[in-house]
Amino acid sequence: MEQVNELRRRYCPRALALAVMAGAILIVLDMKPIGKGIILGTIFSILNFLIMSQALPMAVVQGGKGSVLRSLGSVLVRFVLMAGALFVGAKYDAYNFFAVAGGLFAVQLVILADHLLKALRRQI
């Protein structure tokens, strides 16, 4: 689906670019665990969105039992991935847990910010 590809192309690179910029600034300011945590969380947020947007059209096309299995599998894989990122944040001091958790919302925040900016531009 072209519209879904367009969503991926629009939001994923922006989320990654913002996270790398924020992470780099924090690392330079000697807040390495926070900076690395944001980047790690964002990478997993992007992976989550990519799998979600990839699996949904496939599930719709397949139909029947295959569709249900594919949807459940997608949910399982996505939550295991996010749990993996949080596990790294909880177990390794090199990553700040809360920064990883914040990074997991990067794609959602970029979507929200993009639409709010558009609404603001419409008003101006």
């Binding site: 879904v4 979600m52 949904l56 719709v60 979507i111």
Partner: peptide
């Protein structure tokens, strides 16, 4: 259908928060 699918995907991503 493409636009609806896109809207659903964005809505679900937020609902999942």
């Amino acid at each position: 259908s493409g636009e609806v699918f896109k809207t659903m995907l964005v809505g679900q991503a937020v609902a999942e928060s």
